[in-house]
């Protein structure tokens, strides 16, 4: 998913249709002209007042606190963590603990593996969810209602229980300790399909598809030129959620993989060893395991921020 970074001329050319895309069926707005001029403001015409910032700051503080405390704990010693009150500011052991965690858990290989795993799952989920969600939202076909119910139904199977039969299945395929054992079972997601369907129901006007059809566009072209642009913010959010989920998943990877070919969450297990687990080093490992996610945040975050309309004119 590359952002629209082509030159200004192409952007102008693509302006009208993107505006149309964003207007839902019910929108009474006269278009495309007024839509186009207002499109520059991207739906966020209201400026935030001070209260908005205060509420958001509070919410953000609560959200971030455990993560920040992880960093504080990682900068201390295990003994200090046992004392009350717990440390509330950074100590001097951060780099020592980070280094120990990195080498003891051999996180280098694990990071590469997890990037492959989480990246593949994200690509698969976003791609297949978008097209399936589009079909469920906007195309009429036999059994579509039933198939949609079936899709949602698959979400209802508790994952904790699938572990044993899935292991037997993976063992049959001789995939134990190989990355595809953790990639393929979560390569698609019912959550994603349902999410995309609900989103496109709202965000993608049916007239747009009809118009494209009248122009003789094939389904693939419609996916590429109509659905993907309209779905971009949702694809970015889904991509972000999926990436984080895949990165932090541990129940199944611990069972399917071992430390000769680990993901980060599997590798981090080697830190809690010995009768006296060093909590500071464990926290350092947890911190290291989370850092790559921050990069993913920035990568996907930009996509979410620059919503469809804004993206069209930003260049």
């Amino acid at each position: 998913m590359k952002s629209r970074t082509s030159g200004p001329t192409t952007d102008l050319a693509s302006d009208p249709p993107t505006d149309v895309i964003t207007s839902p069926e019910s929108a009474p707005a006269p278009r495309p002209k007024s839509g186009r001029s207002l499109g520059l403001k991207a739906g966020r015409t209201m400026h935030a007042g001070p209260w908005t910032y205060i509420v958001l700051a509070l919410f953000t503080a609560v959200s971030l606190a455990p993560l920040i405390w992880t960093a504080i704990a990682a900068s201390r010693t295990s003994g200090r963590l046992a004392q009350t009150p717990p440390p509330l500011w950074f100590g001097g052991n951060l780099f020592k603990n980070l280094e120990r965690a990195w080498t003891e858990a051999s996180l280098g290989d694990a990071m590469l593996n997890t990037t492959i795993v989480a990246g593949s799952i994200t690509i698969g989920t976003v791609l297949f969810s978008t097209i399936a969600g589009f079909a469920f939202a906007k195309l009429k076909f036999k059994f579509s209602g039933l198939l949609l119910l079936l899709t949602i139904g698959t979400m209802m199977v508790p994952p904790q229980l699938s572990v044993v039969p899935l292991y037997l299945w993976i063992a049959d395929l001789q995939w134990t300790n190989q990355l595809q054992a953790v990639i393929l079972p979560t390569f698609v997601s019912a959550f994603g399909v349902f999410f995309m369907r609900q989103y496109l129901l709202q965000a993608l006007p049916s007239e747009l598809i009809e118009a494209a059809r009248m122009d003789g566009a094939s389904s693939l072209r419609i996916i590429w030129h109509v659905v993907f642009p309209a779905a971009r913010p949702a694809m970015a959010v889904l991509g972000l959620l999926t990436f984080v989920m895949a990165w932090n998943d541990f129940l199944w990877p611990i069972i399917a993989l071992n430390q000769s070919n680990p993901t980060v969450q599997v590798a981090l297990n080697s830190l809690g060893t010995g009768y006296i687990p060093d909590r500071a080093v464990i926290m350092a490992g947890a911190l290291l395991g989370t850092l790559p996610l921050l990069f993913a945040f920035i990568l996907f975050g930009k996509q979410i921020v620059s919503g469809i309309m804004q993206g069209a004119v930003k260049g």
Partner: peptide
């Protein structure tokens, strides 16, 4: 994400 698609 859904709010982004609400026409301003």
């Amino acid at each position: 994400a859904a709010m982004q698609a609400v026409p301003h």
